[in-house]
Design a protein around this nucleic acid. Structure first.
Length: 565
DNA sequence: GAGTTTGAAACT
DNA sequence: CAGTTTCAAACTC
């Protein structure tokens, strides 16, 4: 059944009904993981995985993955319509692999190829990008351990939230075939497949030119004998044609539904029983109907930023279903990678024995000790991580369900002040930068970026050009990281008995050295200019000069340390 | 455990 | 945007 890694699909993707049914019924040995997404400016992308081998073993039976674009893309696009990736690529890719139950396969994804789509990245580059994060395999596997604890019901009930352009695509089930907006003759909208708490699939069509619409599918529409969705007409006003059901419902406040800024964290996740949105907000998709502004739930209100760009402030318990068990909205931190998560999440991850549910995972997070912020400011790690306080030592805490209104307002204020406020600070895993970097960079002045005061150091990443730190000593990749902990370059040198921290080799880079180096680089630039070199040639000359300078500095360091050069 | 240091967040 | 203040975590003793 495996078609092999070199076989591309350029046409409409295949969704063999029997295999879909196998998934839906949990029959092992076969399965397809599919991810569909619609973009206003790009076509549908479909990722499928055909599996062979022992499905009870997530380490085996890896087939090929096809990144397919089943409808014609922009002819001018350099994007490859199809490419393939090996299983290993997939396992280490931003697409998170979940195996909720032995014999049951599902794909959770983080569509981090946004950049690739928008910038015309070639498929080869995408593959490289995927390969560049291969170091995450371990973490991804760890995530599997989590997911394996989930039940089949949870699999169907909790969607994946995937980034696609400025819109997250929420996928719950690999069972939902794509819905083509044939009325428009193109994939012009963002469609999202959601499931309500009862497992009922719902397709939300976000039309950028108008209000969003919902296609509701009755229960059982994904029966084993009917792989095609059976849309029915949702009641509502201002309907517009939107196949396949032909009729739609005007939600009037779609920001609430699905639109979400890039990289935004769902700002809530409550342990405990989940709230059924349908119960809370009425029958239509469980979404509020007709209201705007502050709803009954503090997170229910949309922040009207315009079509396709708002805040998903759904109630914590409900959205936590989405977040906790599927995927983070952050591509770079997907899979609970402990090295790319914010510190609170990282701590949670480290403190968890990977044996419990996500609630266990959350309950073991480090409690905060806020006293004055009411845990409603970003000082509070719980709040900053989109968590409510639980078993914390905080005083006058309002970061809980009893103070939903206050919490909502605080979230709104934070987001208004900084739309990236709830985005992980560590991210942007790129080629050549597999560990990620601090998005804002640190501003340390006294710690040398070698204490946990430094967010980069705490996240176990090197400081980067983004940082504005002074006296940084956390800028060089250590060749010998401790197997368990993190050793900075200076610490490593100290361990080698090369002296006290004051003798850190970086101390050799004095102001004079820097000035001399800069002088050399400037001289090289001037020479390049005199010679009429092109920009690229000049850059190469300067870089070569810089390399020579670094070599000299390195030699000086080794000489001063008494080590052989 | 109290006090100090630190840097991010918030404020002006 | 820069400087100051507030805050809570990290650190030291």
């Amino acid at each position: 059944m495996n078609k092999g890694k070199d076989e591309f699909d350029t046409g409409q993707q295949e969704l063999p009904a029997e295999r879909l049914n196998n998934i839906s019924t949990g029959v092992p040995n076969e399965g397809i993981m599919s991810v569909e997404g619609y973009s206003e400016d790009r076509a549908l992308f479909y990722l499928s995985r055909e599996i062979e081998g022992d499905e009870t073993d997530p380490n085996s039976g890896c087939g090929s993955f096809r990144f397919c674009c089943p409808v014609p893309c922009d002819q001018n696009s350099t994007m490859s319509h199809c490419t393939t990736a090996t299983c290993q690529d997939f396992m280490s890719s931003p697409y998170r692999y979940m195996n909720p139950n032995p014999g049951l396969n599902s794909a959770a994804c983080s569509w981090t190829s946004e950049g690739a789509l928008h910038y015309g990245m070639m498929s080869r580059e995408i593959c490289d990008a995927v390969a560049s994060i291969s170091s995450d395999v371990t973490e991804e596997r760890s995530e599997e351990v989590f997911i394996k604890q989930e039940s089949t019901f949870e699999l169907r009930d909790k969607p994946d939230i995937c980034q696609h352009g400025n819109h997250p695509i929420v996928f719950l089930s690999p069972l939902d075939p794509p819905v083509e907006n044939s009325a428009a003759g193109q994939m012009s909208n963002v469609c999202q497949v959601l499931h309500d708490a009862n497992g009922r699939p719902q397709v939300v069509v976000v039309n950028h030119q108008s209000l969003p619409t919902i296609h509701s599918m009755p229960l059982g529409s994904h029966s084993s004998t009917s792989p095609e969705p059976q849309f029915h007409t949702a009641q509502g006003s201002n309907p517009e044609l939107c196949p396949p059901c032909g009729k739609v419902e005007d939600l009037g406040h779609f920001d609430y539904i699905s639109s979400y800024p890039v990289g935004r964290m769902i700002p809530s996740s409550l342990p405990g029983p989940c709230t059924l949105p349908s119960q809370q907000y009425g029958p239509s998709l469980g979404l509020p109907s007709g209201h705007q502004g502050l709803p009954s739930s503090p997170y229910g209100a949309a922040v009207p930023l315009g079509p396709g760009f708002g805040y998903n402030l759904m109630p914590g318990p409900y959205m936590s279903q989405f977040h906790q068990n599927s995927c983070s909205l952050y591509p770079d931190t997907l899979g609970l990678n402990p090295e790319s998560q914010p510190k609170m999440i990282q701590r949670q991850y480290e403190n968890t024995a990977l044996s419990g549910s996500h609630w266990d995972y959350k309950s073991q997070r480090k409690p905060c000790n806020c006293t004055k912020s009411q845990c409603l400011k970003l000082y509070c790690d719980c709040f900053a991580n989109g968590e409510v306080c639980s078993n914390c030592n905080c005083i006058n805490c309002c970061n809980n369900t009893e103070h939903e209104t206050e919490r909502y307002k605080a979230i709104k204020i934070c987001l208004e002040r900084n739309p990236e406020a709830f985005r992980p600070k560590i991210g942007n895993r790129k080629l050549g930068d597999p560990k990620g970097r601090h998005n804002k960079g640190c501003n340390c002045k006294r710690s040398g970026c070698l204490k946990n005061y430094c967010e980069c150091y705490e996240a176990k990443i090197m400081c980067s050009s983004t940082c504005k730190c002074i006296g940084c000593r956390n800028y060089e990749e250590s060749p010998k990281r401790k197997s368990v902990g993190w050793a900075s370059p200076c610490m490593m040198m100290s361990e080698k008995g090369m002296g006290q921290k004051s003798r850190c080799p970086l101390a050799c880079i004095t102001l004079d050295v820097v000035e001399a180096t800069c002088g050399c680089l400037l001289a090289q630039a001037e020479e390049a200019e005199k010679e009429g070199c092109t920009l690229s040639q000049a850059e190469q000359m300067i870089l070569e000069e810089f390399g020579q300078c670094l070599t000299q500095i390195e030699q000086s360091i080794f000489k001063s340390s008494g080590l052989p050069v």
